[in-house]
């Protein structure tokens, strides 16, 4: 099975559903754990983060009542989505991730080399998405409440993450809507935030030509999704004894996760940055060293034969009878 082709197909279909789904009367709700941006007019489902930020922007007292119930309900739907597909939302469905993968394809077509983070940088960079997550929770709360008697945050800060999210600018373009490309001079806050978003959009395109999935490493959705890493029905397992630590997996990993290669003891390898794109399983040449399971049933297992097949050696593979 050539999983990367399947993945591109699934991503393309998801992209069409999530960006143009509204034209076909598809509506998958506003609690999707993926960047199906709510600023896209014909979307087939909405990103959880925008609703989440809106719902948080309440005085604390309201959370005891109805607003709290609605928040819990929204989080429950989000949790359900997340548990079923785990991080596959990022690697297989996210339209923004698909965009980055396609840009990577263009990059490799033009023979532009890949850059990698240094290990220390990579480790430090991991925390950025948590900073974003904390801010996107605290700022909306701070708009409706005053912390420690401080002044409330001005309303220009509402939905802070969406304001600096490059997906908000880029994804509507696919719907023919260029209106999000602007700098808002109505107040200092909006001016700064819209300038930041334009810088991030530019960096998104620049980095797409030197790195894979650069945006994902600071995506707060990934941080939220990683709450369900260990209980998700879809899981990535590793058999440390069969692993030769050849490093194929971590080199092919678009998120540059080193644990997948270094880990010898732990079996669950859905790490906080993992997007479950399964590239590591594809490039693993050892039988059953890596395995994807859904509800405990193996659905995709690393094998010598499969490895060689995916490396473009179809004609030889039939001779290896013992390969899994």
């Amino acid at each position: 099975m050539k999983v990367y082709r399947l993945r591109i197909a699934v991503q393309a279909i998801s992209f069409i559903i999530l960006i143009y789904g509204g034209l076909f009367y598809i509506d998958m709700g506003n609690r999707m754990p993926t960047f199906s941006c709510a600023y896209v007019d014909d979307r087939g489902g909405g990103c959880f983060l925008i609703g989440f930020q809106h719902m948080l922007s309440r005085p604390f007292g309201e959370f005891l009542g109805d607003a709290g119930i609605r928040l819990l309900k929204a989080m429950g739907i989000f949790a359900l989505w997340s548990i079923v597909l785990n991080k596959a939302w990022c690697g297989w469905i996210c339209p923004f991730g698909f965009l980055q993968d396609m840009l990577s394809k263009i990059r490799s077509f033009f023979d532009v080399d890949l850059s990698r983070f240094g290990w220390i940088t990579r480790t430090r960079y991991k925390s950025v998405k948590y900073i974003f997550l904390v801010l996107l929770i605290l700022i909306p709360l701070g708009i409706a409440n005053s912390f420690f008697g401080l002044e409330k945050i001005p309303r220009d800060w509402s939905v802070p993450f969406c304001q600096i999210c490059p997906a908000r600018v880029i994804l509507p373009v696919f719907n023919g809507d260029f209106s999000q490309i602007h700098i808002d001079f109505s107040s200092n806050t909006t001016m700064v935030l819209t300038t930041i978003v334009m810088v991030l959009v530019a960096l998104f395109f620049t980095t797409a030509f030197v790195k894979r999935r650069f945006f994902c490493s600071y995506c707060p959705m990934l941080a939220l999704l990683s709450l369900f890493d260990k209980i998700g029905l879809l899981s990535l397992k590793k058999n440390g004894q069969r692993c030769t630590r050849c490093g194929n997996c971590s080199r092919a990993c678009p998120m540059e996760i080193r644990e997948i290669e270094e880990e010898k003891v732990l079996t669950n390898l859905v790490t906080q940055d993992c997007t479950l794109c399964l590239r590591c399983v594809e490039v693993c040449p050892e039988d059953k060293a890596l395995e994807t399971r859904f509800c405990g049933i193996p659905i995709f297992t690393a094998s010598q034969q499969g490895f060689l097949k995916r490396q473009g050696l179809d004609e030889e593979s039939h001779t290896n009878k013992n390969g899994a």
């Binding site: 990577s104 890949l114 040449p285």
Partner: peptide
């Protein structure tokens, strides 16, 4: 041990070979 060609760029393949 096998070389896994990921992107098929020269630099990528050299990296794969080195690894």
């Amino acid at each position: 041990d096998k070389v896994a060609v990921d992107e098929g760029l020269l630099s990528d393949m050299l990296h794969a070979i080195a690894d």
